[in-house]
Structures are given as C-alpha cells and as structure tokens.
C-alpha cells in the first residue's frame, strides 16, 4: 500500500472530534481512519448528523470552536496538518486543499465581481502579475464550463444561476491547482440535471489533474457515479469502507444494506420500500457496543457490549461482529426480514 508511487495523498488515522458542552464531552467523530490516493474520489456517505461534514472540516482546518480535534492525525503528502497554526493552515487550504460547500453563496462574496474574486484568490496563492492572474481566471472559468467567460467576468454572484455559481466555486477551489478537494454536498442544492453537469466536471478534473477528491454527500446516486471508493459513516464512526461497486451492490454492514435498500429505484416497484426501523441515535445517546445494535436485525449479545472496529468483510471492510470468527453472540431479538 505504501509503495512510493501510490503513497496516499491524504491519510486520516484515528481521527476524533469532540465538543465540550456543559453536560459533558460529545464525541462527534470517533476513531475514523481512511486514506485517499492521488486522482482518487472517496465518497463519504451517511445520514445527517453522522459526522461527515465534521470530518471534512477537520481535514481543511475549519472546525468551528468549541469543536476540536481531540485525537488522531491527518497527513497531507506525508506531512501532519492537524496541528498547524492558523496562518499556516490557511495557506495550505488555498494552495494544496480546495474546499467546495453545499451552498455556493457562502463561498462567494456578494459585493465583488466573480472575476475579481478569482484574481484575488489566484494572487494570494500564486506569484502572478494582475494580467497573468486575469488570464488564468478566464481559463478557469472556461475550464469549469461557464459560457461567454469574458462577459461573465464582470458579473456579480447573484447574476448567476445556482449551477453556474457552483461552477464558479469550483473554479475558486481550483485557483492554485490543489492536490486535494474536499467537497461537502456540492450538488445537494442543485437540480438533478445540473447535478449531472457538476459531477461530470469534478470527474474530469480528477482525471486530468490527478486531484484527489473527498466527496461528502448523502446521495448514493452521486456516489455510485463518481466515487472510486466509499466510506459509510454512522453515529460518528465508519461503518464500512470499500470499492464503490462492492459497497453499492453487495454491502457487508447491515446498516449499509438497509441504507441501499431504502433508496427507491426505478423499475422495482412495490407497495413498500425496505426501511430501517428507528433512527440514528443522538450524540448524547449512543448505545454501548455497536452503535447500530438497537436497529440491527442481526444484533447479538456481544453487539450490546463490545464495539466492533473495521474488519475484512467480503470485498469491503466493515465494523460488524458478523465478520468476526467469534460472531455476534446469542441473538438479541428474533431475526426479522433481512435488511
């Protein structure tokens, strides 16, 4: 895995994110480890509150206090970036890591033209004169598919449609040719037709520049089309990680299976969709053992006591005792229909 050519670009190991509160410490991301290779798209999925965005924020150094990294390491091209001073991290963020968020408006300044924002960002990170920066900005707008880029240069963000704004944000993220892009729900606010355009764009960039992408979304359709590997989060932990095809088509973890089953698909109509009973626990109420045990049709005694770590499970790695030689222990409840 660590032959030099294929050394991971990003390595996250045992990441833990905490929020100190009056009623004690909330652990929002707990012992999360994964890596991303150059040119690879890692999809991160899970329901809202699972910890996807906090994991992304920890990587780009934008955790909002009092949230803090309480354990583990984050390495970019071998160098630790989780403990850097603010100024240093700010420079890495523009130059080597680009960020794209759900709402393009939060990344754009409404008072400046799109062109000016691009030129300033470029000049912050690259030693370019104004005219060269302008040329590069135009080139970027063309690259992300903004028609009539010259004319659009002098326009303000509100004069762009949602899809166009997200393209501008992608152009901004690309200004300094970053090695990694962290994209948090980049297509969630867009129509499916526009989604397809943005995804095609991200994939093209990945291919042409060998940029690595961490793509956070709760939309499995987007993941299935874009990601090389998928990490599934549940209640702050990784439930499963593996190649996209295997996670989508033959997931090992009961939660992933339930999640995949609950997605309506065209062509398979029934009077009932598969559903996972109950809901994800709040951070204050995470049960001991496997956090999924109250909802799991396979849970055994062991699941209520011991917490499973990721282990080999078929073609993926899953945090589930079903894949341990000792198994789940005596059954907790009568098995219902397979998730």
């Amino acid at each position: 895995m660590t032959s030099l050519a294929n050394a991971p670009l990003l390595e996250v190991s045992h990441l833990r994110v905490e929020f100190p509160t009056r009623r004690g410490t909330l652990v929002a991301v707990d012992d999360v480890s994964f890596d991303i290779a150059p040119g690879e798209v890692l999809g991160v999925v899970g329901e809202s509150g699972a910890g996807k965005s906090l994991t992304g924020a920890a990587i780009i150094g934008l955790l909002e206090p009092p949230g803090r990294i309480a354990g583990g390491e984050i390495r970019l091209e071998g160098e630790r970036i989780d403990n850097l001073p603010y100024e240093k991290m700010r420079r890495i963020r523009g130059a080597r890591i680009g960020a794209i968020f759900q709402d393009p408006l939060t990344s754009l300044n409404p008072l400046y033209t799109v062109g000016r924002q691009l030129v300033e960002t470029i000049q912050t990170h690259l030693p370019l004169a104004a005219s060269a920066a302008r040329a590069r900005a135009l080139e970027l707008l063309k690259e992300v598919g903004i028609p009539a880029a010259e004319a659009r240069f002098e326009h303000y963000p509100h004069q762009f449609s949602g899809g166009m704004r997200q393209r501008v944000v992608i152009a901004l993220a690309l200004c300094a040719n970053p090695r990694l892009i962290v994209a948090d729900e980049p297509t969630t606010a867009l129509d499916v037709s526009i989604q397809a355009q943005i995804i095609a764009l991200l994939k093209k960039l990945c291919r042409e520049h060998r940029t690595a992408v961490m793509l956070v979304t709760h939309d499995m359709g987007v993941i299935a089309e874009t990601a090389d590997r998928v990490a599934v989060m549940y209640a702050g932990r990784l439930a499963e990680i593996g190649p996209v095809r295997d996670v989508v088509k033959q997931a090992a973890h009961p939660y992933t299976r339930g999640l995949m089953g609950s997605i309506p698909s065209i062509g398979e109509r029934s009077h009932r969709l598969t559903q996972i009973e109950g809901s994800m626990p709040r951070l204050t109420e995470i049960p001991p053992g496997c956090a999924f045990n109250p909802r799991c049709p396979h849970a055994g005694q062991r699941c209520t006591r011991e917490r499973p770590d990721l282990m080999p499970a078929g073609r993926t790695r899953a945090a589930c005792w079903l894949y341990d030689p000792q198994g789940v222990g005596a059954p907790l409840r009568a098995e219902t229909v397979d998730a």
Binding site: E47, L259, S262, I263, P264, T274, Q275
Partner: peptide, 10 residues
Amino acid sequence: DVSVQAQILN
C-alpha cells in the same frame, strides 16, 4: 435522509 424517506413514503 433516504432511510427516513423510505419510512415516510411507506
């Protein structure tokens, strides 16, 4: 979320 969506549609 999709899993909750399935519950509501059902």
